[in-house]
Design a protein around this nucleic acid. Structure first.
Lengths: 145, 145
DNA sequence: GTGGTTGCAAATCCTTTGCAGACCT
DNA sequence: AGGTCTGCAAAGGATTTGCAACCAC
């Protein structure tokens, strides 16, 4: 099934989906792990099964409402609410593997580097998707390991 | 225990460690997963337990002889022999989101872009880890969606 | 001989899946 | 009503760990 078909497929508005999306939207700047969402909803007296959380997050990611990040090999995946898809079009993401913070930035150098990559690879080049690519590293506020 | 202490600690040259390092060194340009190493050694008639492979790879990574990569959320960790620290310093990974192929490439432009990022971010800059960062996109052999 | 190492199996962690019943539309 | 969605438990894959036997030094 293609992404287009996925999005076209009927989707029901259930209590659980709303709870999960509300949780993510309550702090759009923050990343949540699936477990954190489970715990938060449980503490709010509206428990949702972990498998449901995973399934809903996958659906939300497919529809573009939520973005999934892999912060580091030591932690589980994190999910972040996407407030405005357009706002994400022209910048890149730096993610600190230590504290999980995401920094947005623009860079003319990067555009040049991507074009270089596109033409240098063979055969047919390689188109780099800047929106899908996340730069991992360490922010200035986190101590070096 | 610090890294320095780890390296200073007695390390024994066992048959298994040699086999694993030989396997990695047999193709220094390639990434191997732990499972691949297990299979290769088994097929060569010198089986090594999977747990031993993992432990040895961790030790080799700690000592700098092997580098560990996390190429994607869909695959397990990959390990690459470090023939010459300099030789591996400046290469990056492109992963095709369509076919999953990983392409290695070198880029002076990217180094420049990373340095720009490091100094442009506040406070304290942002150190980009080129080993952890994977560029997602589409390779020339896969049709545009 | 001693203590790092190995192999095996069991355990862990995160995530996915099978299935029966519950719930949208 | 009909198909989707949920919750539970069990399975899954990658990696780690406990432990007795092992072997390098």
């Amino acid at each position: 099934m293609t992404d287009a078909e996925k999005q076209k497929r009927a989707r029901r508005n259930t209590r659980q989906k709303k709870l999960i999306l509300d949780c993510l939207a309550s702090d759009a700047g923050r990343h949540f792990t699936a477990d954190e969402i489970v715990d938060i909803l449980k503490s709010e007296g509206a428990p949702v099964a972990k498998s449901t959380v995973y399934r809903s997050l996958a659906a939300l990611e497919a529809s573009g409402e939520v973005r999934k990040y892999f912060l580091s090999e030591f932690s589980s995946a994190c999910y972040q609410f996407v407030a405005d898809a357009k706002a994400c079009a022209e910048h890149y993401h730096l993610m600190c593997v230590s504290c999980g913070k995401v920094v947005h930035f623009e860079s003319a150098e990067l555009g040049r580097a991507f074009r270089e990559i596109e033409s240098a690879q063979t055969p047919g080049g390689f188109f780099v998707d800047g929106r899908r690519t996340v730069f991992y590293g360490r922010c200035g506020e986190c101590p070096a390991e």
